[in-house]
């Protein structure tokens, strides 16, 4: 047994790479099979957002755009705070085959420790909510004066 740091799947799709590429990289495609709606700025460094009708959201940062072969993005780890520096990297690779496309998805980065700098800051801030609440009280006191 090991920490599941990386997930990999390969599927054979009976459609040409161009069609699969469109499903992966357009708002219309992503909003149809991945989320219930999507926005995407398709360029390295661009952002994308998936939204679901239950109110759940996922923000992505586009990392690799090599049409119609490689599409990669990073996104947060489900359950961790939005500002957590830990992210996983998802990369789709499309290879043309006689019958369509071999699509591989690799998601890596689940087994990350927060970096040392972050950990130090984190340990120093074990005050957590008590600290935040202290600041709130100070703010309210200052404004009441």
């Amino acid at each position: 047994m090991g920490f599941p740091g990386r997930i990999e799947r390969t599927v054979e799709v009976a459609h040409p790479p161009a069609r699969v590429w469109a499903a992966l990289t357009t708002a219309e495609g992503l909003g149809a099979w991945f989320g219930n709606a999507a926005t995407i700025d398709l360029r390295p460094g661009g952002s994308a957002e998936l939204t679901w009708t239950d109110g759940h959201k996922a923000s992505m940062r586009i990392e690799r755009v090599e049409e119609p072969r490689v599409f990669g993005y990073t996104w947060g780890i489900y359950g961790l705070p939005d500002d957590d520096p830990r992210h996983t990297y998802v990369e789709f690779t499309l290879e043309p085959t006689a019958t369509g496309t071999r699509l591989t998805v690799v998601e890596s980065g689940f087994a990350q420790l927060p970096d040392d700098e972050y950990r130090t800051a984190f340990e120093a801030n074990t005050g957590g909510w008590a600290h935040e609440l202290g600041e709130l009280v100070e703010y309210l006191d200052a404004n009441a004066a």
Binding site: F3, P4, G5, I7, R9, I77, Y78, G79, L80, R86, V105, E107, F110, A111, Q112
Partner: peptide
């Protein structure tokens, strides 16, 4: 949570 997130990711 990271461990669970990997298990819960339903590719």
């Amino acid at each position: 949570q990271q461990f669970l997130a990997a298990l819960a990711r339903d590719w």
